[in-house]
Amino acid sequence: MNSYAVFLRGVNVGGITIRMAELKSALKSCGFSAVTTLLASGNVALLSDLGPAKVKSRFEECLRESFGYDAWVVVLTAARVAEIVDACTYPADDKSTHTYITLSSDPAMLDELFEAGSKPDGANPDGASLHRLGPEALAWLAPAGGTLESPFSKLSSKPRYKSSTTTRNLRTMIKVRDAAGALGES
């Protein structure tokens, strides 16, 4: 069995409400085991014999059938989540900034976001503080209390990126790393 972390896009925002107990039950009925939900924002650790691409496909199909919405997820192995967290040089806790990690199931979309977010322009005169953590992840900083107004947040929330990206703060990524890692140890 492989330990995975699955990050759902757009859950419990924008009219898509899923109770974590219902999500856990649906995923178990779709053949996943040791399903653990973390927080109410769509973070799941689970075990599966399937490879990452098959987990993604089955997981999205399960969400569509069980909850009736156009679901997208990013799937990473527990080991890869740990590598991403370890590669992030930004602080997990800082009073002046918040660290976010944008994950993507499509490296080309993340390349595009990274390039666009790194360019200085009128709204972002110095370019965003972006750090690529691998083909599926990049870290960025936002001022405390100003995440939604930050240029990169506005850029990454465009509909173009909806089906392939999702963002978590670093503190959440650490919790997911710990939960998915614990499943791999059992």
Rank of each mutant, 00 (worst) to 15 (best):
P52L: 04
S129P: 13
K95Y: 00
L8Q: 01
G15T: 13
P120N: 12
A179V: 12
R80D: 15
S118T: 07
G31Q: 09
K119P: 08
Y4N: 10
S48M: 02
G127F: 03
E60D: 04
D94N: 13
A144N: 00
L76S: 09
L46M: 12
L170I: 07
L183A: 02
V13Y: 07
D94Y: 05
P135C: 00
V13G: 03
F152N: 08
F67D: 01
A123W: 15
S25L: 09
V176R: 04
C62E: 11
S118Y: 07
F32T: 01
C62I: 04
P120F: 11
F7D: 02
A128H: 13
E22R: 03
R58H: 14
F152D: 01
L39G: 02
S153W: 12
N43V: 12
S104Y: 10
S153Y: 14
P151S: 13
S129R: 15
A116Y: 11
L50K: 15
A45D: 11
A180Y: 05
W140D: 11
L46T: 11
M1V: 15
S105E: 04
S105G: 12
T166G: 03
V13N: 04
V81I: 10
F67K: 11
G181L: 03
S150F: 00
F67M: 02
A21Q: 14
R80A: 06
G181I: 09
K56F: 00
M1P: 12
T97D: 10
T36I: 08
S104P: 13
A137S: 11
E83N: 12
A180E: 09
A53S: 10
K54L: 01
H131P: 04
D178C: 00
G181P: 03
D86A: 15
L39I: 14
G117E: 10
S118F: 05
S66F: 07
S164G: 10
A144Y: 08
G134E: 11
D49T: 15
P125W: 08
K28R: 09
T17G: 11
A108I: 08
A142C: 14
A144S: 10
G181V: 09
K158H: 15
P143A: 15
D111A: 05
C88Y: 01
A82V: 10
R177D: 02
E22F: 02
K154T: 08
F32V: 12
D93I: 11
Y69K: 00
R80V: 00
L130I: 10
L110P: 02
K56G: 06
S157P: 03
T99I: 01
A71N: 05
G117Y: 06
T167Y: 01
V55F: 03
V74W: 08
E149V: 08
P143G: 12
L110G: 03
S41K: 03
S25G: 05
T167W: 02
G134R: 09
G146Y: 08
D121W: 07
Y100R: 02
N12P: 00
L113E: 06
G68H: 15
K158A: 15
L155R: 06
F7L: 14
G117W: 01
